[in-house]
């Protein structure tokens, strides 16, 4: 073994190198590494968060869509029901109207019939009187026998 002053020289070199490394080399490099690690970790966390947000938004969107569909079908149902109801009501109303109109028609017809009957009766009466007049013209005075004619007319 060959120990000599080189040992001292190398020891000094070693000390200087370690001191230099400790002061000027290690801190900036490790700081850069740690900073980047933090950045990457932040980025990953952010992307994870964004993914979760997206998922949430998607699920809420589907929820909304389903709700809207439900609502729409409910409205349509309601509308259909209402339409049916309206048709029913209108039909009902139409029926009653028709019946009313028909009934009124009957009444009017009845009244007309009665009036015509009356008229006819009067006419027949008159006719009978005029016929009777013509027959009896020679023998009966109209004034003297009008009460008999009236009675006849009433009987008709």
């Amino acid at each position: 073994m060959n120990f000599n002053a080189t040992l001292i020289g190398q020891l000094i070199a070693f000390t200087v190198f370690v001191a230099f490394c400790m002061k000027y080399v290690w801190p900036p490099i490790i700081a850069a590494i740690e900073e980047r690690q933090k950045k990457i970790a932040d980025g990953l966390a952010a992307s994870e968060r964004a993914e979760k947000d997206l998922e949430l938004a998607q699920s809420s969107a589907t929820d909304k869509l389903r709700e809207a569909k439900d609502e729409a079908s409910k409205i349509i149902d309601q509308a259909k029901r209402r339409a049916n109801q309206l048709v029913e009501e209108e039909t009902q109303r139409g029926h009653t109207e028709r019946e009313n109109i028909i009934a009124q028609g009957y009444v009017e017809i009845e009244a007309e019939k009665n009036r015509v009957k009356e008229d006819l009766r009067k006419q027949v009466g008159l006719l009978a009187i005029s016929g009777a007049q013509k027959i009896l013209a020679r023998e009966i005075d109209a004034q003297a026998h009008s009460d008999i004619v009236e009675k006849l007319v009433a009987e008709l």
């Binding site: 060959n2 080189t6 001292i8 020891l11």
Partner: peptide, 15 residues
């Protein structure tokens, strides 16, 4: 090769 010199390796280990 500095590490084939025993002075180098001993300097390191003494440090």
């Amino acid at each position: 090769v500095p590490t084939t010199d025993i002075n180098t390796t001993f300097a390191l280990s003494i440090g």
